[in-house]
Nucleic acid binder design. Structure first.
Length: 152
DNA sequence: GCCAACGTTGGC
DNA sequence: GCCAACGTTGGC
């Protein structure tokens, strides 16, 4: 069992969107970064804990808790010609991009990036490091527990 | 909208 | 395999 932080732009999929989806679940489409893909492909298991993070918005931060609900499988958008996420080098026989499914556990208060930066316990979190742009990052179990305690 | 940081691409 | 150019991310 591992823990993750996954960024989503709320203008694309927000925590409230997730809450309104069938099964409160979404395919985590559009990952086009090898490191992030490899996390999904090689390490994510059903039941892994996920912090659902709102990025590129007015108040970035953790907006809810979710879990991995389906193992990685080919991202369908890579095959749709003309789509933003189309990849001409990907074929159904040899897909390049994958996604897991993520299911809502519960919406939380918005724990802002600003607040996250105030806790010495989180000083080493990947998301808080300078220049971090990776949209999926592992979360240390201690960090997971600490953030959960702050969210209670 | 700016821009720092970082990933990817492609010429050599 | 190097590295300059370019594209993207995402906080501010």
């Amino acid at each position: 069992m591992r823990y993750w932080l996954m960024k989503s732009e709320p203008s694309d999929v927000s925590i409230d969107d997730l809450a309104g989806f069938p099964n409160q679940s979404v395919d985590w489409y559009g990952i086009r970064n090898y490191q992030a893909r490899n996390f999904m492909r090689d390490q994510m298991k059903v039941g892994d804990g996920v912090f659902f993070y709102h990025s590129n918005c007015d108040v970035p931060g953790i907006a809810g808790i979710a879990e991995v609900s389906k193992l990685a499988y080919p991202d369908r958008l890579q095959f749709i010609k003309g789509h933003k996420y189309y990849d001409e080098k990907a074929t159904p026989e040899n897909p390049r991009w994958l996604n897991v499914d993520v299911k809502l556990v519960r919406k939380t208060r918005l724990l802002s990036l600003k607040e996250l930066r105030e806790y010495p316990e989180l000083i080493n979190m990947r998301i808080l490091q300078r220049g971090n742009r990776l949209s999926i990052t592992p979360v240390d179990p201690k960090e997971w527990d600490f953030i959960n305690s702050v969210l209670k």
